[in-house]
Simulated assay, not measured.
Amino acid sequence: MTNRRRPTWWAELLLLALVYGAYSGGRLLARGDVDLAVDHGLAILRVEELLWMDFERPLNRLFSQSGVLGIPADFVYASLHYLVTPAVLIWLHQRRPRHYRAARTWLVASTLLGLVGFSLLPTCPPRLLDASYGFTDTMAQFSAYGWWGGEASAPRGLGSFTNQYAAMPSLHVGWALWCGVLLWRHARTPLVRALGIAYPVLTTVVVMGTANHYFLDAVAGAAVMGAGALIARRLLALRDPAGTGTDATPDAAPDAAPDAVPDAVPGAAPGGRAVGFRGKSPIVGGGWDTSARELLPAQRPPAADTADDDTAAAAR
């Protein structure tokens, strides 16, 4: 495995800033028609009701009736999305550089796919539907406790710089799933790996409980990440046909050295390698009853050498 040089941090920062700027700007340009967005939101809600999958309803009722749940959920929605994702990127860059390039490409491809979804399917979130549909905007309800106003997670006075009809797919869920998969795959402690499972689950519950997304938005967010992973794999394969920059082995894992055969074992080649086994140590099996120093028939010296040994033994 060829170890690639760690990507330059400032170049990566510039690239991610450009992608995020394009993503944010694209969200604003893809606002679409409000009536169309409401129609899409109601269509999603009707499908969920038909399939008994409108999980956001009871969750939102619970979160809006209990500040103990609603307020922390609002803070999670307004902050972790913007903190955990870059933290995982930095961790990969510094501690798992072998996997960073693939992870970054996956994130960028999925984010751009999400932008396409916002453009093609502007969707009104549950919190912006008419009150008759039974949803409460917990971000507005508990806005006195945080820095946000009544316009989603945007700080007060900046609501006009957000696209509130970019609910489908949910990149809150998509990015959380990206973080979770990478923590599960590359973390080395059970606690961090457990957090990798808990974080996307928590995010999915929060986006529904705060009425910012439908359940199917969350499903679409996961689907976008799956499609982004396939695109990223293809892009990396085109860029590196030999696969030297892939995600194949864990970081800092020593190259496994084949077991050596003791020098004293008869039939071993110079350097302790057993003859006839292409450099690998002999494996005892197949019902053979052998000792640790005995060779199988395939490992024994040629017949001529054996005859010489027999002659010498007879002379003794």
Rank of each mutant, 00 (worst) to 15 (best):
W147P: 09
P72D: 01
T2M: 13
L115N: 03
L50M: 11
A166T: 00
A30Q: 04
P155A: 01
A227V: 15
L16S: 11
A232E: 06
A252D: 13
D308T: 14
A167H: 00
R104K: 11
W106Y: 06
T85L: 14
R127I: 04
T189Y: 01
A298G: 13
R101G: 13
F135D: 01
C124L: 02
R293Y: 08
F161K: 12
R156E: 14
D54H: 07
P250F: 04
W148K: 04
R46K: 12
R61Q: 08
A252L: 12
V205M: 05
W9S: 13
V224A: 14
T210Q: 07
C179W: 09
R46P: 00
D240F: 07
A314F: 12
A152H: 09
F215W: 06
P155K: 00
A37C: 02
R4D: 13
T204N: 04
G286P: 05
L14Q: 08
E48C: 00
L202V: 02
A253P: 07
P282E: 01
F277P: 05
T246Q: 14
W9F: 14
V34M: 08
G21E: 08
L62D: 08
R61W: 13
G267N: 03
S281H: 13
F142L: 00
L18G: 10
T85A: 15
F118T: 03
W184C: 15
L120N: 04
L69D: 02
F161H: 11
G228H: 01
P97I: 04
R278A: 13
P266L: 14
L13W: 07
L158Y: 09
G26D: 02
A252R: 10
H99Q: 15
D259V: 15
R234P: 06
A264K: 11
W175K: 11
T189G: 09
A11F: 09
G276D: 06
L238Q: 13
V108R: 06
R4C: 14
S24C: 10
R273S: 15
W288S: 02
A268T: 15
Y133P: 03
A131V: 04
A22K: 08
P125Q: 02
R185E: 10
A223G: 05
A103N: 10
G285V: 05
V173T: 07
T249V: 15
F277Q: 09
R188L: 15
A11H: 10
N212A: 12
V108W: 04
L14S: 11
F215R: 08
G159A: 01
T290G: 10
L18P: 05
G32K: 10
L51R: 02
V68S: 01
S66F: 06
W148Y: 02
R104T: 14
T189F: 03
P72Y: 00
N163E: 02
G150K: 00
R185T: 07
G279Q: 02
Y199N: 03
I71P: 04
V34F: 07
A232R: 06
L128D: 07
V261N: 10
F277I: 11
S119A: 12
V192E: 07
A11S: 11
V84Y: 03
N60Q: 01
Q164S: 07
M53Y: 02
C124Y: 10
A313V: 14
T162I: 05
T306M: 15
Q65P: 06
L14M: 09
R5V: 15
L129N: 01
W175D: 10
P266H: 11
G70W: 00
G286V: 09
A87K: 00
T311E: 15
P262D: 08
